[in-house]
Nucleic acid binder design. Sequence first.
DNA 1: ACACTCAGTTCCTTAAGGGAACCCCCCAAC
DNA 2: GTTGGGGGGTTCCCTTAAGGAACTGAGTGT
Lengths: 151, 151
Amino acid sequence: MQRTKFGDMACSIARTLDVIGEPWSPLILRDVYVGIDRFEQIQADLGISRKVLTERLKWLVESGVLERHQYETRPPRSAYVLTAKGTELVDLLMVMVAWGDTWADDGTGPPVLYRHRACGQISHVELHCAHCGESMRARDVEILPGPGAAA
Amino acid sequence: MQRTKFGDMACSIARTLDVIGEPWSPLILRDVYVGIDRFEQIQADLGISRKVLTERLKWLVESGVLERHQYETRPPRSAYVLTAKGTELVDLLMVMVAWGDTWADDGTGPPVLYRHRACGQISHVELHCAHCGESMRARDVEILPGPGAAA
DNA sequence: ACACTCAGTTCCTTAAGGGAACCCCCCAAC
DNA sequence: GTTGGGGGGTTCCCTTAAGGAACTGAGTGT
């Protein structure tokens, strides 16, 4: 497959997809987020090919969303941990979860629940405006060209 | 490529990725969202191969996130429109935009700005708890097995 | 010395993406 | 009434990525 490069597009969605646009990456980040953070564990949990997992991990580390930490030297054992950049991608995963729970439920209910520490309730995420705090969804915004728009 | 099926996994992230996990789909949805809603327009805007675009559109329609509307019969002209299911996916795109603006800026600033109609300000989305309304990010939640968890 | 685990690497097969050419339908101009 | 052009695809070939299994190699543990 000669895949098109997304990183150069003047589009923040495309640039985000350049990092995690291929389907395994979000699942790898999820695994690392929940503590499945070593090569063998991730491979077994996802059933991903070892070859592809190696490639993805390398790319995610290069992209600065994961770091490889050798936490033991004898025997050498390493774990992957989320950087700040990677942790903010987990926010994206939480929105995916909310959508999947709503629109792709197989009838058995959500596989994972999220308890919000602040209020103690099982909940999910909603999108709000960073400025006024009110709900901010697709239908609530107007789109304008920004400074980095293509010529 | 014999790609692994994500739709059957007991994971809402995987089930979401089953629909839009391949890198072009989010960009197609973005295009439709901003009004680039016809085959030729999308193809020209994204530079995607016509073959792949045909496949993607078919899949997105099958998945219920887009609908094909023939708005003119002579000559036959059709446009793709977002369903409710698809419109909620645009929320996901807005989070991608926020991440891309923050972490993948090439120095020229964001290519697109979003004005929140409610407050009139240029803004971006933040994640809040659907229950208490407070900020709800990756670090603010506890993960629990839900009813649809794998055995 | 032998088995075992972790973390990859190598090799082969299959299928998906890119790209260009081609096709059909409808309309408009010459 | 045939040529030209646009919309909306389909067909073809080529390249490359994903899957999968086997192999490697360092480092214990017995």
